[in-house]
Amino acid sequence: MEQKVGVVGTGFIGPVHVEALRRLGIEVKGVLGSAPSKSEAAARKMGLQKGYTSYKEMLSDREIGVVHLTSPNRFHLEQVLAALEAGKHVICEKPLGMTTQETRKLLAAAKRYPKQVTAVNYNLRFYPLNLQARSMVRAGAIGEVFHIKGSYVQDWLLYPTDFNWRVLASEGGALRAIGDIGTHWLDLITFITGLEVESVMADLCTVHPVRQQPPQGSVETFSAKKGGKKPTTTPVKIHTEDYASVLLRFKGGQRGVLTVSQVTAGRKNAIEYEIAGSKQALAWNGESPEQLWIGERNEANRILLRDPGMLNDAAATYTSYPGGHAEGFPDTFKQLYKAVYADIEVGKPSKNPLYATFEDGHKELALCEAILVSSKAGKWAKVKY
Score class of each variant (00 low, 15 high):
Leu168Gly: 00
Tyr159Gly: 07
Val145Asn: 01
Ala202Gly: 06
Phe250Met: 02
Thr206Cys: 14
Phe146Pro: 06
Gly173Lys: 00
Thr259Cys: 13
Leu195Phe: 03
Gly266Trp: 05
Thr183Tyr: 01
Cys205Glu: 14
Phe191Glu: 02
Val257Gln: 07
Gln254Met: 04
Ile178Ala: 06
Ser199Gly: 07
Cys205Phe: 09
Arg255Lys: 15
Gly277Glu: 05
Leu195Ala: 02
Thr259Leu: 10
His184Ala: 00
Thr206Ala: 08
Ala281Pro: 10
Gly172Trp: 09
Arg166Asp: 06
Gln280Pro: 11
Val210Arg: 09
Gly227His: 08
Gln213Ala: 07
Glu198Ala: 12
Ile178Leu: 12
Gly253Met: 03
Val219Ser: 11
Gln262Arg: 12
Arg249Ile: 05
Val207Asn: 09
His184Asn: 04
Gln154His: 11
Gly228Glu: 10
Val246Met: 02
Ile148Arg: 01
Ile275Pro: 04
Val153Asn: 03
Met201Tyr: 15
Gly266Arg: 04
Val145Cys: 03
Gly143Ile: 10
Gly256Trp: 00
Val153Met: 11
Asn269Val: 08
Leu204Phe: 07
Val207His: 13
Leu247Cys: 12
Glu171Leu: 07
Leu195Lys: 01
Gly143Phe: 12
Ser223Asn: 13
Thr193Trp: 00
Ser218Leu: 11
Glu274Asn: 09
Leu248Arg: 00
Gly173Arg: 01
Ser261Glu: 03
Gly253Ser: 02
Ala281Gln: 14
Glu171Arg: 07
Val263Ile: 14
Val207Gly: 05
Thr240Gln: 04
Gly194Leu: 06
Ile178Cys: 10
Ala265Asp: 10
Lys268Val: 15
Arg211Ile: 13
Asp162Ala: 14
Leu158Asp: 06
Gln280Arg: 15
Arg255Trp: 09
Leu186Ala: 04
Asp187Gly: 00
Ile189Asn: 00
Lys268Phe: 10
Gly228Tyr: 07
Phe191Leu: 03
Gln280Gly: 12
Thr240Ser: 09
Val246Thr: 02
Leu157Ala: 05
Ala169Cys: 07
Glu171Cys: 10
Ala244Ile: 03
Leu282Cys: 07
Val263Lys: 01
Leu168Cys: 04
Leu195Pro: 00
Gly277Pro: 05
Lys279Thr: 08
Lys225Pro: 04
Tyr243Ser: 10
Asp180Ile: 03
Thr264Trp: 11
Arg211Cys: 11
Thr193Tyr: 01
Ser278Pro: 08
His208Ser: 11
Gly252Thr: 04
Ala174His: 08
Asp155Cys: 06
Arg267Met: 09
Gly143Asn: 14
Lys268Tyr: 10
Trp284Arg: 12
Lys279Ile: 11
Gly143Arg: 08
Ile238Tyr: 04
Lys237His: 15
Lys268Leu: 12
Lys225Thr: 11
Ala169Glu: 12
Val153Thr: 14
Phe163Trp: 03
Val219Leu: 11
Val197Ile: 13
Gly150Asp: 00
Leu247Val: 14
Val200Phe: 04
Ser151Glu: 05
Ala177Asn: 01
Glu220Trp: 11
Leu247Thr: 10
Ser261Lys: 05
Glu196His: 12
Val219His: 08
Pro160Phe: 08
Thr234Lys: 15
Gly179Thr: 02
Arg267Val: 09
Ile238Glu: 02
Gln213Pro: 04
Gly286Asp: 02
Ser245His: 15
Ala283Gly: 08
Leu195Asn: 01
Gln262His: 13
Phe222Pro: 01
Gln213Ile: 06
His208Met: 15
Phe222Ser: 03
